[in-house]
Design a protein around this nucleic acid. Sequence first.
DNA 1: GTGAAAGCGCTAACAA
DNA 2: TTGTTAGCGCTTTCAC
Lengths: 328, 328
Amino acid sequence: MVTIRDVAREAGVSVATVSRALNNSPNVDPGYAERARAAAARLGYRPNHVARNLRRQSTEMIALIISDVSNPFFTAIARGVEDVAQREGYSVLLCNSDENSAKESTYLGVAEQQRVAGVILSPHQAGSDIARLRSAGIPVVIVDRPLSDDVDTVLSESREGARLGTRHLIDAGWGRPACVTGPVSATTATLRLLGYRDAVQEAGLPEISAQSIFQQSGGSAATRDLLSRPDPPDALLIANAQMALGALDEIRRRGIEVGRDIGLVTFDDAPWAPLITPPMTVIAQPAYDIGSHAAELLLDRVRSPDAQAPQRLVLPTSLIVRGSSRRS
Amino acid sequence: MVTIRDVAREAGVSVATVSRALNNSPNVDPGYAERARAAAARLGYRPNHVARNLRRQSTEMIALIISDVSNPFFTAIARGVEDVAQREGYSVLLCNSDENSAKESTYLGVAEQQRVAGVILSPHQAGSDIARLRSAGIPVVIVDRPLSDDVDTVLSESREGARLGTRHLIDAGWGRPACVTGPVSATTATLRLLGYRDAVQEAGLPEISAQSIFQQSGGSAATRDLLSRPDPPDALLIANAQMALGALDEIRRRGIEVGRDIGLVTFDDAPWAPLITPPMTVIAQPAYDIGSHAAELLLDRVRSPDAQAPQRLVLPTSLIVRGSSRRS
DNA sequence: GTGAAAGCGCTAACAA
DNA sequence: TTGTTAGCGCTTTCAC
């Protein structure tokens, strides 16, 4: 491997000068700088960032830890994060905790031990422990699911979105809407259930709900449970896109028809949502914006680490009405 | 920040002993080891991996650089990679190059400068430059799209899969199947076109095709192009799931009905594929296995870096017949 | 403006 | 078995 010493020797200057030249330090003779750069190019020199990071006690990487890469909501967040990070000269390490606390804490540890500049975390569950990171002086921004009050957080309006979606179902003429949501450990699951409850109580309708994991299989299971009850619901408010896929599967399996026998609204405007039959009515979350805002907030903290009051951004959701909620 | 020196002082032993204890070195007195561990725990010591990596000249991270996180094919690969990496004590840095050569080479540079143990790359285009990485002694495994012959590669049978899918369309009674595929820069796009060509030539049918980017918008554009021709096709072989979504969109927009007016087969068994109407016939690629095999191969190379002959694994694809290819 | 040298935190020779 | 120490490659004082 070619090191900075090799470059210095080749250029006939000191290592300090090479370092300064390559880092565009202001006080370096243009002639020397050029010689250093030329020598570096000739030798194919690549600065060793491990060494640089050790010396500088900082890195230009941010870790994004999400619970499930295959959830389009999170991939959209990732896009938002990446775009601003890239623009600011940072790289993003995407860590997939796969709805698994052990994996999550492994990655939290990796982030700390690699001394990343900052972490954006979508906590698997409310108990996720970011205390270590924070005491190590690494800024953290939480997305999607609130963790506690004293940390920067970017969310969307889960409860209000759920209320609106349920209300829409009721207005469309469905008399027994139910809620299919995620595990109690996920705050978003609970908030969506609460929003649903707000709407049914307002309308004087019975509350029907089932909880399971935030995945396709969970959606199937919860829907199966609901539709097997003596008094089954006639509409479903579903808490995320993966669960919606599972619900659709179970509905198809039973030969029930969406729009005639059952009404559907789901969180997240997945790419496939407008393309199924009938097209899916959704409560869209501004996932990209959640990511970009989180990254901006994080980089602010990275650059001015003076303890400021934690910020909490709550972005609005929007109801996109398509066919699946229509009663025909 | 608490360092190994602090721990040594606290435990009343030398830094070397602490290091040995914490790394489970065999030759260390159990009593001392225990004292070191206790002191570390008491102080909340976290080894600085940046320093460790610099000293050891190695890391326990592998970089996975994929062209698009929102493509379910790649997220499945990521799962495969992560599972074996985790099992072997490595962490995975997922880098999303976003079908963008500049981003890809940024991440290639980051991987090199961070001295990752190895890289798994799904090259954006055939020209991706991994020479630097290789000359830096970092093993590379290529997935999905072949790059050159002298590097480890894990692929699936694109051409044969495309041939089978097209053949199936013809057998189902569609007389003018066309191919919707990705850009010429992507080898998989070309291979799938070739497989399609094999099948139509065999059957004495005309060759109809359109190329665009491997994304939803590309699928729409290519389909629009095809269906606007004077002699439009009556069936489509589509080269990936995102393009299929775009094709579906365009088809819906035109009021054409799948199964009656047009037959469809697409690469990749996306989660939504069985759930649309009619369910999508697909050529499934063993994405998870591609990922796990690639990771295994990579870790072999990491552990025994003696130059061995490059391996090339080609995994089979399988046709899953559902409704979209049926002529009713 | 430039270079010598210290030192980031750790591991691994080497000596005891 | 344990401790002392050199040194991984870099940046950044500090003295010139």
